[in-house]
């Protein structure tokens, strides 16, 4: 177990080192601080930013939006997927609606949402519009993936609903739901941060990026992007660990 963890950490460290080397080569090749700033300057800027309250406020408010967008999408996707599974006619009616959500050019729609709401709320709505259809599809697939033979056997033996839910449905559905959710949460961060950049949301990670770009503080912009990347990585890793723990527990 420990050996596998070290192997993974080693792989990640090597990949990050490789990216840093590519960055350094690109910096040397381009030779323009405004296009590709020096890696070590950006690293210094990252360390400086991590010591400021502004950055942590920005991270906090972005994560709060991620949490809201993910929670609303998760709950609604779960409810609608369950209804679609139990009532196939509703599933057929709902499929084109989900298809419509899926095909929305989300960041372009942000402009319309900004007319209706504020720059603080719009990123949450944008993230919801992307997360909901993918989570719904994942959850619906998890429900329909429950072994039909076992459902039939449970019907024949008149197993009470509570027992069916805990012994048959949850062990089958939970690992898939957890895996979908783990992938969705880091995707939510990408969506929220991108929407914040476009909306220029005050006191947010995306808002800080937009500010750095406007004042041509390129090392700060690169530092903020790196922080967002590492944050996404952290969320994805935590999500995957939680998903694996759930899978081990129920299977």
């Amino acid at each position: 177990m420990k050996r596998t963890v070290w192997k993974h950490l080693g792989a990640w460290a090597t990949a990050l080192l490789f990216l840093a080397i590519v960055w350094m080569i690109a910096h040397a090749a381009v030779g323009n601080e405004l296009l590709v700033p020096d890696f070590f300057v950006c690293l210094k800027e990252t360390v400086r930013l991590l010591g400021t309250a502004t950055l942590w406020r920005g991270i906090g408010s972005t994560l709060l939006r991620v949490f809201f967008a993910f929670s609303i999408s998760f709950v609604l996707a779960l409810i609608f997927a369950m209804i679609a599974y139990l009532l196939p006619s509703f599933g057929r009616f709902f499929a084109p609606i989900v298809g419509f959500f899926r095909s929305l050019p989300t960041l372009a729609v942000l402009l319309i949402i900004l007319v209706w709401t504020s720059a603080a709320i719009a990123p949450v709505v944008v993230a919801f519009l992307s997360l909901f259809p993918s989570l719904y599809a994942g959850f619906f697939a998890a429900f329909t993936g429950v072994d039909k033979d076992l459902i039939e056997m449970s019907r024949v033996y008149r197993v009470p609903l509570k027992k069916r839910v805990f012994c048959l449905y949850l062990p089958s559905v939970l690992p898939l739901v957890a895996r979908e959710s783990a992938a969705a949460i880091s995707f939510a961060l990408k969506l929220v941060a991108s929407a914040e950049v476009l909306a220029g949301t005050f006191q947010s990670l995306g808002g800080l990026m937009q500010e750095a770009k406007a004042y041509l503080q390129i090392p700060q912009l690169f530092a903020l992007v790196s922080i967002a990347f590492l944050l996404g990585l952290l969320l994805e890793t935590l999500g995957m660990l939680a998903a694996r723990a759930i899978e081990r527990r129920v299977r």
């Binding site: 033979d149 076992l150 039939e152 056997m153 024949v156 033996y157 008149r158 012994c167 048959l168 062990p171 129920v250 299977r251």
Partner: peptide
């Protein structure tokens, strides 16, 4: 009420 022995055992793996 019926007892049904299917072709496959249909046991819950977990």
């Amino acid at each position: 009420r019926v007892g049904y022995i299917f072709q496959e055992p249909r046991l819950l793996a977990n």
